[in-house]
Computed example of a mutant assay.
Amino acid sequence: MAMKLSAFGHRWVLRWRWVLAVLAVAAVPAGLSAWQWQRGAEKEATLARIAQWEREGAVGLARLAELAAAAVRPPMASVDGVQLDFAARWIAPMVWLVDNRIVDRQPGYDVVIAVEDIADVRAAGSSGAAPRAALVNLGWIAAEGGRDALPVPAIPPRLRVQGIFRTDVTGLLLGANVEDHGHWPIRIQQPDPAQLAAWLAVPLAPGLIQQQQASPFHIHYRPVVLPPERHRGYALQWGLIALAVIGVALAASARRLPTESGEIAHEQS
């Protein structure tokens, strides 16, 4: 079964197997183009959400919980990007080291601790309610020696938390997340609040605060690594590749007719 097309002095014989093969090849870059465009839209939405929370002003842990409880959308999605600024107390001795963090081509760890809002602790003490806690990524520390020699970061007992609250902090995990050898610090693969809450006796916010300033460690976090414009550029490139695959296939199958014709004829055989 084949379809014959004639137009502008050329004829194409399109066999269905050949058409399906070309479309299958073109579908790969076309799919990548759509994915990159979607990623650009997601990054743009993330930046817009963070900018909106910046205009709202920074809050503490108590206000963060109120915003999550009052949101129409699911709490974890609604408070993503909230700006936080509060005096905090480190819940010692808890320190988690997030593995496989490369900064300036040097391996190391992100230092994650659990903190309480001091104002929240005081209010809870007077009311009898349990204070809230949150995980804070203070930044990066270089690895020391081999895999068995974990760095021991010096954590101040009190610090100022100034950062961005992110709810999407977990990804694809291969193997166990936590390497618990019975002492601190503990090496982890990703800061999963649901899992790390087992070490705490108080409620834990369902996300991670990325410290943005005033940290004893190297702050390298950026909400968006590749800007939306870069993703759209990649989407355009992959889209052009998909069109090129189809165009090359058509050019390779074209045959010049002995007489010119401006009509397109369809013939099934």
Rank of each mutant, 00 (worst) to 15 (best):
Q189T: 05
A176L: 09
Q83H: 11
G182W: 08
V202T: 05
Q190E: 13
A71I: 00
S261P: 12
G9D: 04
L196D: 06
R17D: 04
Q211W: 06
H220L: 02
G139D: 08
A48Q: 12
E263K: 15
V169P: 11
E260S: 13
A119G: 13
Q210C: 07
H231W: 10
R101Y: 00
S253G: 10
Q36I: 00
L67N: 03
D99K: 14
R105G: 03
V28R: 03
M94S: 12
R158C: 02
H220M: 04
Q212K: 15
L204K: 14
V72D: 13
P156W: 03
R256K: 15
H218Y: 07
S215G: 11
V98M: 06
Q83G: 10
G40N: 12
I264S: 09
R73V: 00
W96E: 01
E179M: 11
I186V: 09
Q38D: 08
A265T: 05
A30F: 08
A123W: 01
E42F: 14
I50W: 09
I113H: 04
L257N: 10
W238S: 06
L32T: 00
L32M: 13
R17N: 09
L240Y: 09
H218L: 08
P228Q: 11
A214I: 01
E54G: 15
Q83P: 12
P157G: 03
S261M: 05
